[in-house]
């Protein structure tokens, strides 16, 4: 698996897209710092961008990489290699290189701005950690979609729909449920609802860490009570890990049964 990871990673590092992605984050970091002129405010703005953009890029890039490396995969399948190591290696190659672009692209401008002397360092680290989680989650989901769809147009379509659903539509539905059932106690429902969507979960985690949960109103208080404690934090990290593990295991399972 490590050899496949090495070649996938090497292949991606040479491709233009990793640099475009890296340059984009670099520019974003610089512009935000320049405009906000304040580290902790820049972190908040950055959160809004990351929460929406990282999943999108992870999904698109994952699907694109899978379809583009079809020939490479077929070449590898005839070699004495396990199927699971071929796909896991490719998946990790994509996810790690995307995460590296994110961490380096955002990290460099913030470090130069004086991150290490600032109090925002933990907020910023949490931001990067959730960003990395989101990259791993959405790349895994993208690989799942691509493995199940031979037709690339369909694959791309489903990938975009998935992103649209989790990033935008889910929130709408969630809000509507809360409004319709407002006469009932909803704290448990909203907690579970948040756990079921990795984007919402990441957003909530960061907002609470940034201590602006007042923005969340009544449910914010419930959330703070839950997520604010060590237990809540643990549960949400477990949920994020599950969001990585479940799609990855489906991916290895599916790849074992597929015909090439």
């Amino acid at each position: 698996m490590l050899k496949i990871l090495k070649y996938s990673f090497y292949d991606l590092m040479r491709s233009r897209w990793s640099y475009v992605y890296f340059a984009f984050y670099l520019l974003l970091g610089i512009v935000l710092l320049f405009l906000n002129n304040d580290l902790s405010k820049a972190v908040i703005t950055l959160m809004n961008v990351i929460i929406v953009l990282v999943p999108l890029i992870g999904t698109i890039f994952g699907v694109m990489y899978y379809y583009n490396s079809k020939e490479f995969t077929e070449l590898l399948l005839a070699q004495p290699l396990k199927r699971s190591s071929i796909f896991l290696g490719q998946y990790l190659g994509v996810a790690i290189s995307l995460s590296m672009s994110l961490i380096l692209g955002l990290g460099i401008p913030f470090v130069f701005y004086g991150l290490f002397k600032s109090t925002a360092i933990w907020d910023f680290s949490l931001l990067l950690i959730t960003g990395t989680f989101l990259t791993f989650i959405f790349t895994a989901l993208a690989f799942n979609i691509a493995l199940s769809n031979e037709n690339r147009i369909k694959g791309f379509g489903y990938a975009i729909l998935l992103w649209l659903f989790l990033a935008i539509i889910y929130d709408g539905l969630f809000l509507m449920t809360l409004i319709i059932f407002e006469d009932y106690p909803l704290d448990k429902v909203s907690l579970v609802g948040t756990m079921l969507n990795p984007i919402d979960l990441s957003r909530t985690l960061i907002l609470l860490k940034l201590d602006i949960s007042a923005l969340l109103g009544y449910t914010g208080a419930v959330f703070k009570q839950f997520f604010g404690t060590n237990f809540g934090l643990m549960v949400s990290f477990v949920a994020l890990v599950l969001w990585v593990v479940l799609p990855v295991s489906r991916m290895t399972f599916k790849s074992k049964k597929k015909d090439f």
């Binding site: 491709s15 020939e71 490479f72 005839a78 004495p80 290699l81 396990k82 199927r83």
Partner: peptide, 20 residues
């Protein structure tokens, strides 16, 4: 397992290689 493929050399029908 996949180790039996060490005993096989395979020439695929359409030579599709990673183009970069």
């Amino acid at each position: 397992g996949s180790n039996y493929r060490y005993q096989i050399d395979y020439l695929p029908q359409i030579a599709n290689f990673p183009s970069n």
